[in-house]
Design a protein around this nucleic acid. Structure first.
Length: 257
DNA sequence: ATGGTAGCCTTGCTA
């Protein structure tokens, strides 16, 4: 069984204690991290190595930054999303661990919409869809896991009316998320929990966590052959309840390999 | 009432 997780940690340096505690408790095999907010050289590689994890990092000063932690060493590492060589934001890393191709993705937020940032988000999503299509063509078994900054449906939003014009919920964003589903990818959490509110993010402001007012924006998207192996998937809410924690919490799935 | 929180290491930007 492979335990695969994704977590937007909102600064890996500020959250090193949260991360190491969670790794020790949850014991995942592969972890996709987002919003490291540091350069690759500043990633706490020794600390995660001490817990038995290799780390592959695409870093950036202050903003963005993604990584893949794995018990088995990753190979064939790609540190950028294909399709725009002028894109310097560290939002994508892809690698092979065992027989599984894994990508840690940090999609642009896209607010305010409309505007340049929204245009960048939509273009980035088009590139992600192209990449997923290429991986499918190559018949790779793969997972795209990360902060997609998209609430796929109103069920994934505590206040759909208030969020309707937000870049996370706008129809252009949702259409591109659904394009991934139309390619044949499976939203792992919804595959096993089709109905009901499930959240992975609660804003720091306005007591959203305490009030249970969140969004589901962190997803694990599986290729058909990976989805055939899907045995379990859940949101691990415990880390969100800790002091000085990330505004996101991990999503974890188990694949029967 | 255009706030409120958090992390960056700028004195504002991003989320």
């Amino acid at each position: 069984m492979i335990k695969l997780a994704t977590w937007n940690v909102n600064s890996v340096k500020a959250r090193l204690g949260h991360l190491t505690r969670w790794l020790e408790a949850a014991k995942p095999d592969i972890v996709c991290l987002q919003e490291l907010k540091c350069q690759a050289d500043d990633f706490p590689a020794l600390e995660v190595k001490a817990l038995g994890y290799f780390a592959e990092v695409a870093g950036q000063k202050s903003y963005n930054g993604v990584a893949i932690l794995s018990r088995e060493k990753a190979t064939e590492v790609v540190r950028a999303l294909p399709g725009d060589k002028s894109d310097e934001q560290a939002r994508y890393i892809e690698a092979t661990i065992g027989g599984l191709r894994v990508a840690s993705v940090y999609l642009p937020n896209g607010n305010p919409a409309p505007g340049e940032k929204f245009d960048y988000k939509l273009a980035w999503m088009n590139r992600l869809t192209s990449r997923a299509a290429s991986l499918l063509e190559s018949e790779r078994v793969f997972a795209l896991a990360g902060d997609f900054n998209v609430c796929p449906t109103d069920e994934d939003v505590f206040d759909p009316a208030a969020m309707a014009v937000d870049a996370l919920c706008r129809p252009e964003s949702r259409a591109r998320f659904h394009a991934l589903l139309n390619l044949g990818l499976t939203d792992a959490l919804r595959a096993l929990h089709p109905a009901g509110h499930l959240y992975t993010y609660w804003d720091y402001q306005q007591r959203r966590w305490q009030n249970g007012e969140g969004l589901r924006i962190d997803h694990i998207m599986l290729s058909p052959q990976a989805a055939d192996r899907l045995a379990a998937c859940a949101v691990d809410k415990r880390p969100r309840g800790e002091d000085k924690t990330s505004d996101h919490t991990p999503v974890v799935c188990e694949l029967a390999f």
